[in-house]
């Protein structure tokens, strides 16, 4: 999991005219040739700003995303699920750590990013503002939200900024296990007792709207993507990612005898594109701007964790013991 980058805010597109035209041309030529940009390389301010914002929001999505699933670790049914879910959510927190480090290479410290998260200045993936009511919801997240994230992340891993691409390569490798775990859980629910099946269907009904929102607004209303695409910051359009997700996963959901709460959902064989009812984009806007079912709760939990841990971080800055040899 969890981020896409595509649903996130873009930096304001201004100031490009103040860049050194020759350096800018060289920078763009390198990207055109498929080279990676590294932290010490010259880059336009806007590129730096946009990448910080995108990687930071991706990192936030990982730690906030750990909350709805994390609440099911203590309730996971049986040893197999309990152990797997612990490992999975731990991976997500590890992804946040990797991504904060990648963003730090662009000059913003982790502490500043976390401050921006808990003060609400910085966004995270919208889908985690919805509650995971039942075990089946956590199964949905592990399978399908992770699947959606993989679609986005595989695309972004081909982007131009070296540290982000390398982090994404590692993240995607772990995500593929999450996907298997999530799929396995959903298969057991869908083919289990009547009660399990009902729980799973209810979860799909609850999460379908947010899942469609996950890839961001339709391309026709998305703004500022041209330069970002040229600089290989944004690698695929929202609609393309959504279509790819539907193509890969709708047949798998149907295969399990589950239904999707959209009577208009079908693949147009002539165009190869999926047709669907547009999700409520007004709701998307409301939720991303702070008025979703769980926004306040998610940030409150994060804020509490930060406040409770402040003394620990402070104590780390007062080292009396010096370690000269590696600990492990």
């Amino acid at each position: 999991m969890y981020g896409g980058g595509n649903t996130f805010e873009s930096a304001k597109f201004e100031g490009l005219e103040n860049e050194d035209p020759q350096k800018l041309a060289e920078f763009e030529a390198r990207i055109e040739r498929g080279e990676k940009i590294e932290p010490s390389d010259w880059m336009p301010k806007l590129y730096r700003k946009q990448l910080i914002r995108m990687i930071e929001q991706h990192a936030h999505s990982e730690i906030i995303g750990a909350l709805p699933e994390g609440t099911w670790i203590t309730r996971a049914p049986g040893f197999k699920r309990k152990l797997a879910l612990m490992a999975k959510v731990q991976d997500e927190v590890g992804h946040a750590q990797l991504l904060y480090s990648a963003a730090e290479t662009l000059g913003k410290p982790r502490e500043a990013m976390i401050d921006d998260l808990i003060t609400g200045k910085s966004k995270y993936s919208n889908i985690f503002n919805y509650p995971a009511f039942t075990w089946a919801d956590s199964c949905f997240i592990s399978w399908l939200v992770d699947a959606g994230a993989i679609v986005n992340q595989l695309a972004n891993a081909r982007g131009s900024y070296g540290p982000y691409c390398r982090a994404l390569d590692r993240i995607c490798a772990e995500e593929s296990f999450h996907l298997k775990y999530g799929h396995h859980c959903v298969i057991h629910m869908a083919t289990g007792s009547e009660k399990q099946r009902e729980m799973m269907q209810a979860a799909i009904n609850r999460w379908w709207g947010p899942m469609m929102h996950f890839f961001g607004p339709p391309d026709k209303v998305s703004v500022h993507t041209e330069v970002l695409m040229k600089w290989k910051v944004k690698m695929a359009s929202n609609d393309d990612c959504r279509n790819q997700f539907l193509d890969m996963y709708v047949p798998k959901i149907w295969e399990l005898g589950l239904t999707i709460p959209d009577p208009n959902l079908k693949k147009n064989e002539d165009t190869g594109r999926w047709e669907y009812t547009e999700p409520d984009w007004e709701e998307f806007k409301r939720v991303i701007n702070g008025d979703g079912p769980c926004n306040k709760e998610r940030l409150a939990v994060r804020r509490t964790a930060e406040e409770r841990g402040a003394w620990v971080r402070k104590a780390l800055l007062a080292p009396k013991t010096e370690y000269v040899a590696p600990l492990a």
Partner: peptide
């Protein structure tokens, strides 16, 4: 496991 997502720093969550 209840510390997942709640640690004083990410490294301790992990």
């Amino acid at each position: 496991s209840e510390w997942t997502g709640m640690g004083p720093l990410l490294e301790e969550d992990i």
